[in-house]
Simulated scan of single mutants.
Amino acid sequence: MSVASQKKSLPFGYQFLAGAIAGISEICTFYPLDVVKTRMQLERGQSPSLVASFRNIVAQEGFGRLYKGLVPPLLLEAPKRATKCQWSRLLEPPLMPIKYSGQSTMTLGLSTLTGCSAGATESFVVVPFELVKIRLQDKATTFKGPIEVIKHILKTEGALGLYNGGYFGTIFQVKAYLPKPDSPQSRLMNDFVAGTFGGLVGTAMNTPFDVVKSRIQGAGKVPGVVPKYGWTYPSLALIAREEGLRALYKGFVPKVLRLAPGGGVLLVVVEVTLGFFRKALGPPYI
């Protein structure tokens, strides 16, 4: 096959748009599970079950409460997907120089490195949005919207108050074990299975840290009072000592129910959207 006839990668803008569409689709579908997850993580002591939490929120606060705080994650999707797409382009051969990577094709190591690099960079963008979202999701919140939350944090805690690799590696490894797809349908099924397993493994790895993040971000700063939850590892030990190790996995069920199938949905929507763009642009992208 000549160089001229080789299939080209889609321009960054199209990859970014496909990721954003997929991310927004996943958020709108599974967001109520994120609200329930945050509520369970903010509970001290015994928290209600998943079903009980859903029932309590709807009965006491109305169905619309399950979508409280939706605006920040929707606004976050564009910069979040841009970060992931850019790291994928930088680290995936042949864009990454072979003299640095030593590889001419994507490997488990490079795939994991892509995820870790994207996650580390993304955190600088994600944290403020997550903080606002959690303040809005809290049952005791008095904030009416994200702008009110931001103004309150800037006024009481300052700008720094907004800043109070398993997924990609697992996807790569699962895809390697799955039968080679022989049709667009089987390719989409492989993407869904790999994304689901990636979401499951990623959730199992990061839930304790997510619990700590919710506790730190959920507590407002009170002048003259030392926050109970400050740094990550001391907070992990404190929660385990006071509430037991199981408390570090509060909200695991709603989180895994969102991120496991959500990861599969994300990959499928990305591939379907990219396929649409390739057909629309024609050769040499198809």
Rank of each mutant, 00 (worst) to 15 (best):
K180H: 07
E148R: 11
F143S: 11
T273R: 05
R65A: 07
E77H: 00
G102R: 15
K37A: 13
L33K: 09
G145I: 14
A194K: 01
S9K: 14
L74H: 01
K221A: 04
G64A: 11
V51R: 12
Q103K: 14
I286A: 03
L33P: 07
H152I: 09
G115H: 06
Q137W: 08
V125E: 01
S53R: 11
F197G: 00
V270C: 07
F172I: 02
V270E: 04
A82P: 00
T196G: 01
N190W: 02
V272D: 08
P234D: 08
S235T: 11
R81S: 06
A260R: 05
H152C: 14
L91F: 12
F30Y: 15
G62D: 10
L178T: 04
S5M: 15
F209D: 04
L33T: 06
R258F: 14
I147L: 15
L281Y: 03
A118Q: 12
G109C: 13
G109K: 08
L76S: 00
T203F: 02
I21E: 09
P208V: 03
L238M: 07
E242Y: 01
S183K: 03
K228Q: 07
V126A: 08
V265M: 09
Q60V: 05
V193W: 00
S49T: 11
C28F: 09
I150R: 10
P128K: 08
T105N: 09
G202R: 03
V270D: 03
G220A: 14
L108W: 10
G264V: 05
I286T: 14
L266A: 10
R241V: 08
F63N: 08
S88R: 03
R246Q: 04
R65C: 01
V132H: 06
Y233C: 07
G166D: 15
E61S: 08
G69P: 00
F143K: 12
I21R: 14
A159D: 03
L17D: 02
K151N: 13
M40A: 12
P11M: 15
V201W: 00
L42A: 10
V265L: 06
Q217R: 06
V253N: 00
A120N: 07
V265T: 05
Q15F: 01
F129K: 02
M40Q: 15
L10V: 14
V269N: 04
T114K: 14
Y229D: 01
K221S: 05
G158K: 11
P181M: 07
K68G: 02
F209N: 04
I134Y: 11
S101M: 09
S183L: 05
P72M: 04
F63Q: 09
M40W: 09
E43F: 06
A247P: 04
D34M: 12
I150C: 13
V3S: 12
G166H: 11
G244T: 03
T29Y: 04
I134Q: 15
I286R: 04
G13M: 05
K84S: 04
D138K: 13
